[in-house]
């Protein structure tokens, strides 16, 4: 049976990984078609010379950094609060937010922002995208940080407080350094989900806040282009590295 299982698993792994590997392979193909010609970096040069693509990348990076920082701070504090005492309503809300179809959450945020704009003089733009990304990234941060906290000995905090530390000092100088790898792992995940989101982003973005996934989506709907393969490969490789680092930190 073991041999059957290994063969089956090999097929499943091939299914999971071959499509992206093939895409990466053809991104360094000099021909435009799906026939191999010879090795060339020219589509990468073309992708990096594309101003629209580069502006979208800059937007995406700015949004992802802002959203990751905010959601990591808020999510870490929340996880700490939930670790101190369970909060089933918060846990339930976060769980529901994780399984809510993105399209429904996206139109809900759009309707919310449109309603808000009747009272405030603002428009859809980078700030609305960042706000939306913070909302959907918090759950990921909480899950990762809470898992880390569950391996942390609460007695350490009590010891600090017995020695005269205030509650805040115990959190800031004892617990937080202890769970730092989990916090960084959570931040990397928040950055990743922010960099990757299309559905919610496309609904709450304004005309001047096109993100990289939006540019890729628009291009993908028009068809396949080698420059698109190239930029896709860069993103997959970049996010892949972040995920591997995040994984390592979560297990360390």
């Amino acid at each position: 049976m073991t041999r059957w299982l290994a063969a089956y698993a090999a097929a499943a792994y091939a299914f999971l990984h071959l499509p992206l590997l093939v895409l990466a392979a053809f991104s360094v193909n000099s021909a435009k078609s799906a026939v191999w010609e010879r090795f060339s970096w020219k589509w990468y040069a073309e992708a990096f010379a594309d101003r629209q693509l580069m502006e979208a990348s800059a937007n995406s990076l700015a949004i992802a950094i802002a959203a990751a920082v905010l959601s990591t701070v808020i999510g870490t504090l929340a996880a700490y609060g939930m670790w101190k005492r369970r909060s089933p309503v918060m846990a339930g809300s976060l769980y529901l937010s994780l399984v809510t179809p993105e399209i429904v959450w996206g139109v809900a945020l759009l309707a919310f922002f449109q309603g808000l704009f009747r009272f405030l003089d603002v428009r859809l733009g980078l700030h609305t995208v960042i706000a939306a990304h913070v909302a959907f990234s918090i759950a990921y941060v909480v899950v990762v940080v809470l898992a880390r906290l569950r391996t942390f000995d609460p007695a350490l905090e009590e010891a600090a407080m017995d020695l005269g530390a205030t509650e805040w000092q115990a959190f800031w100088r004892v617990t937080l350094p202890g769970i730092a790898p989990g916090v960084i792992a959570g931040a990397l995940l928040a950055f990743t989900v922010s960099m990757d989101d299309y559905v919610i982003t496309s609904l709450v973005a304004g005309v001047d806040s096109e993100t990289l996934p939006m540019a890729i989506y628009a291009a993908a709907r028009r068809g396949v282009s080698p420059a698109l393969n190239a930029i896709s490969t860069v993103i997959v490789f970049g996010l892949g590295v972040l995920i591997v680092v995040s994984e390592r930190l979560q297990r360390s």
Partner: peptide, 15 residues
Amino acid sequence: PFWTSFLIRTYAWVF
């Protein structure tokens, strides 16, 4: 693959 770009993974199938 659970974390690497869902959009790009879908696009790979278009290709």
